[in-house]
Amino acid sequence: MTIRTLSAAAVAVALLAGCAPSQVDNVRGQATVYEDPQSAGRVQGVGIESQDVVAMTDEMMRDMLANQILAARATPPRIIIDNEYFRNESSSIINTNLLTDRLRVELNRAANGRMVFVGRHYADMVEKERQLKRDGAVDGGTIRKTQATAGGDYRLGGRIASLDAIDRNTQTRSRYHQVTFEMVDLELGTIVWSGAYEMRKAAQDNVLYR
């Protein structure tokens, strides 16, 4: 009786095992979604993210336009904004062009002639074309001829610095960022405008920035 019961149970187990699923996980994947770059997205960590880039560049832009030296001169000052002197010394991975490019673009659009922007990062492109014109390979164009390209009055400098802390018990990490923006007089070397953006974030997730 016992042997018969055991045999039946074994057969049942074997049958069930045979029916056990070896199946494809046939569920719908997560579709790509657009997110608002001004707000925190689904993937969040302690680094500098899109909402921080937008917020800090917007704040600096509005502040520069309220500065008399930069935005209220009878002759608009020539300004260079690129990442040549903008350093990332923080533990966050970020392309500093994200900050300087957005700042320059938004400021150029908003300034509407109150500032003139020198495209120093395009200097070799301009020099090549000027050389072709001077060599007679191409004609002089329709705008004008100048002896030299524009010199800058002010140039952006700045730095991203950070301070990290980690709680070993909870593996929560916290990072404080301090991002400084400064506009330097290119003749005198004085700093005519400064702005700083601070933030501290804490998270447990191990988010990877690239």
């Binding site: 001004q38 917020a55 704040e59 509005r62 336009l65 309220a66 908003a110 300034a111």
Partner: peptide, 21 residues
């Protein structure tokens, strides 16, 4: 653009924003 600020417990905080025009 959304700007973040902390309003401390039972305290006050000031939000400021400048125009460009």
């Amino acid at each position: 653009v959304w700007r973040r600020l902390t309003v401390p417990a039972n305290g006050n905080a000031v939000y400021r924003e400048k125009s460009v025009g």
